[in-house]
Design a binder for these strands. Structure first.
Lengths: 183, 183
DNA sequence: TTGACGAGAGAACGAGCGTTCTCCTACCGT
DNA sequence: ACGGTAGGAGAACGCTCGTTCTCTCGTCAA
């Protein structure tokens, strides 16, 4: 098996397991079992578990933001684009294996012990916030709105994760719509 | 040492350590060292670590909601009371040992493995949401607003925790103020 | 004074798991 | 065919930590 293929399979398994059951309750042996990549190979690709976690978050970050942007760009109107963010969140929340925001979960588990993971979480959130700011800016709306929309989105993610419900997305969307109207 | 005293000391130590460093990275031995309560006594009071965690969350829940209500009730106007929630959050975020929402942190760490902890987190969040709903109702505002304010508060807590900043409280307060005005 | 009981200190036990090592097999070039 | 190498399976190692056990000491009632 090619190294690149083994790496992808390892990351696929890591993502499924870490996201689904949490990082700490998944052992490297579980990753081997799910991926079919031997321990020796796993440790060649990722010298320690923490680096596998980092790679998992990094790859997921790229995909998550990419899919969000792709969804948003299907809309023309600048204000529609902003609301589309919350529609996309709602679709995500409704997926059967949705288990909350992967970065917030990782932060809760590892933020206190792994500075690198904590940094990745902050970077991901900053990137998401910056993306919202760019949408707000493109709509000619005041900068301060971006922070408010960000808080709504974060609140929706965390609440959807804890309650296992997609409803927070609709609530956040409605709040966002009202905030857009006040300016 | 009286059993009740030992219990309080154990819970004080547990709260300081669990909240400050996370549950998983604190051992029962650390709790003994900080509290001065022997392991034997600890296990008499709390037959397993999970029950110490539950007791920690339960006691903190009572205090957290009590202090919030106390702060809010210092204000007369119904709408001022709603905004006071966010002022209180801002004061909390600014405390030097603030490390995010204890329940969301616990959920990230243990939500996937401990059904009882997950249930406590949901109960705490539901109680907070219900409290917001009672404030909204007392102000004669539409029920739907409660959910939106809740999302803003949750987003502020989570963002303040990750970024170690008190600013999200002010942002959420401003968003809340705008939402109050739209109705 | 003595015997019984409770409590504390800390060693001991056992499980889980990250990481490494051993052994064996299969394939490759010559 | 054969020696060498890479890779896989899984045992082994070492550490952490939740939980229990042992041993000793102090206290208190009779």
């Amino acid at each position: 098996m090619d190294s690149a293929v083994a790496r992808e399979r390892a990351l696929d398994a890591a993502e499924e397991l870490f996201y689904g059951r949490g990082v700490q309750s998944v052992g490297m042996d579980d990753v081997r079992g799910t991926s079919g990549v031997s321990l020796k190979r796993l440790y060649q690709l990722f010298p320690a578990k923490e680096q596998l976690v980092e790679a998992y978050l990094e790859r997921r970050d790229a995909r998550w933001r990419g899919q969000l942007a792709e969804y948003v760009e299907r809309h023309e109107e600048p204000e529609e684009r902003i609301l589309a963010v919350f529609d996309w969140l709602g679709e995500w929340f409704g997926e059967p294996d949705f288990r909350g925001c992967a970065w917030l979960n990782a932060y809760g588990e590892l933020g206190a012990t792994s500075a690198r993971v904590a940094g990745q979480v902050r970077a991901h959130k900053r990137a998401f916030r910056d993306y919202l700011a760019s949408l707000v800016d493109a709509a000619g709306l005041p900068d301060a709105l971006a922070g408010q929309l960000f808080l709504l989105a974060e609140g929706a993610m965390v609440t959807a994760g804890v309650t296992r419900s997609a409803e927070p997305a609709a609530e956040a969307r409605e709040a966002a719509r009202l905030l857009l109207r006040t300016t």
